[in-house]
């Protein structure tokens, strides 16, 4: 398992700035890792985005969600991925931090959600246009 996690980190860190949250949602977020948002927001940009599109916390960095939103529209990604952009993503499972999202995907561990998480109410917003 450790080997897979290391391999994943080697591939995804330089490409996406992967933080090894262990529950990868890159395909839903325009191939932009939301864990690079200083607030680790998984469901869109906060209200603090600066007028020039920079991050509230790090003025030298472009808002992660501005990049994500642009890429989800502009990049040639599968339409099913794009459709997931507006879905409500569950709270991060902190117990998975540092584990391999690839391994968790195959084992199904990344789909284990808290019993009280209301997936039935998590309906998508309007399609990104």
């Amino acid at each position: 398992m450790k080997v897979i996690a290391t391999l994943e980190h080697v591939v995804k860190k330089p490409m996406f700035g992967c933080q090894m949250c262990g529950q990868c949602v890159l395909h839903e977020t325009g191939m932009t890792c939301p864990m690079n948002c200083p607030k680790t927001l998984r469901n869109g940009p906060c209200g603090g985005v600066r007028e020039d599109g920079a991050c509230e916390v790090k003025p030298d960095m472009r808002c992660v969600w501005l990049k994500a939103e642009h890429r989800a529209r502009a990049w040639p990604l599968p339409s099913s991925w794009r459709a997931h952009f507006g879905h409500l993503r569950a709270p991060v499972d902190n117990s998975l931090h540092g584990t391999s999202a690839w391994a968790n995907l195959f084992s199904g561990r990344n789909r284990e959600l808290p019993a009280g998480w209301q997936t039935e109410r998590a309906r998508p917003g309007p399609e990104a246009t």
Partner: peptide, 23 residues
């Protein structure tokens, strides 16, 4: 709460929709 005035402007209504959808 939603901020109608912060970028990405065209996405803000979608984010509001997400919150309305969540309850």
């Amino acid at each position: 709460v939603e901020n109608p005035g912060a970028p990405p402007l065209e996405y803000r209504a979608e984010r509001a929709a997400l919150k309305i959808g969540a309850g």
